[in-house]
Every structure is written in structure tokens, then in C-alpha cells.
């Protein structure tokens, strides 16, 4: 198990999967912040003043962290940011599942997402990948730009 967790090929596979997933996830949100803001509102957990700020900033945190993972620039730190986001997503979704809150604005423009339980399961899998990337202690593969970002930890 330990060897598996420290396998460089698994690390790069997870890094690319998470990287591409987060870049893809950010794309629609950046194109349509209006719709994303409505989804943030729909979770019914954030104060009014934070809704637009979250909708503006979060997609770019996803984009930059995703790119960092993909290109191997500060991969450990990017994984930590993504793990933080995933923990927050899991927490928010779980709260809404427990209190039975489901938001459907009936808007064509807001798009469709999966069921909350499926989203939690998916985020837990991503979190496991993120933890492997974070705890990996070997020479990382596929660091095309800055090889010194991917050295073994001392």
C-alpha cells in the first residue's frame, strides 16, 4: 500500500486527472460568472456580500491550481489548495444533504449538476487523489517547466 501511495506513475496520473478536472471545472464558471454566482447563492450558506466574491475568485483558484498540477509547478502546494477546496465542497454538500436543501432555480442558464450524493462521492475520490499528490515523497515525473519544484522532500 505504501509503495502504491509512493508510486511516481500513480502520482502523475492523479495530478493530471485532478489538474484537467479543475481546469475544466473553472472554464464554464469563468465564461458565465452570473450563472455560477446563482449556484453559490443556491447553496444558501453564504452571506450576501460574499456570493459575488466567491463567484469571481473561486474559478481562478481552480484554474491556477489545476494548471500548477498539470505542469508540475509547486505541485504540493497546489494539491493542498485543491484538497482544501474539496474538503469545503464535501462539507457544504453534506450540510445541504443533511438539512434536505436542494436548490433548483428552474433556469436554463444555470445548467444541470449531478445529485448531491454523487457529487460528494466524486469529491471524496478526488480528495484521495489530492492526498496522494500531497504526501508523495519521491521525484515527481512530468515537471516540464521547473524541475526543482518536483524534487524529493528532504
Amino acid at each position: 500500500m505504501r509503495t502504491l501511495f509512493n508510486n511516481g506513475w500513480i502520482e502523475i496520473a492523479f495530478r493530471w486527472i485532478l489538474g484537467i478536472t479543475f481546469i475544466y471545472a473553472s472554464y464554464y464558471k469563468i465564461l458565465s460568472p452570473t450563472d455560477f454566482a446563482k449556484m453559490v447563492y443556491g447553496y444558501n450558506l453564504f452571506p450576501e456580500v460574499l456570493i459575488n466574491l466567491i463567484a469571481i475568485v473561486l474559478p481562478f483558484v481552480e484554474l491556477i491550481s489545476g494548471l500548477s498540477l498539470l505542469l508540475g509547478i509547486y505541485p504540493r502546494s497546489a494539491a493542498l489548495i485543491i484538497n482544501g477546496l474539496l474538503l469545503a465542497f464535501i462539507f457544504i454538500l453534506t450540510i445541504n444533504i443533511i438539512r434536505g436543501h436542494e436548490f433548483d432555480c428552474g433556469c436554463f442558464s444555470a445548467g444541470k449538476t449531478g445529485s448531491p450524493k454523487m457529487m460528494v462521492a466524486r469529491d471524496v475520490i478526488y480528495l484521495i487523489m489530492g492526498l496522494q499528490i500531497f504526501w508523495f515523497n519521491g521525484v515527481r515525473k512530468g515537471c516540464f517547466i521547473r524541475k526543482n519544484h518536483c524534487k524529493r522532500l528532504k
Partner: peptide
């Protein structure tokens, strides 16, 4: 420090 750097770039780019 790296996290602050990545988050800083994200915030500047976002706004």
C-alpha cells in the same frame, strides 16, 4: 509561501 503565491496570482487574475 508557494500557496500564497498561487492564491495571489489567482486573486489578481480573477479581479
Amino acid at each position: 509561501v508557494e500557496m500564497i503565491f498561487l492564491l495571489g496570482i489567482s486573486i489578481i487574475l480573477a479581479f
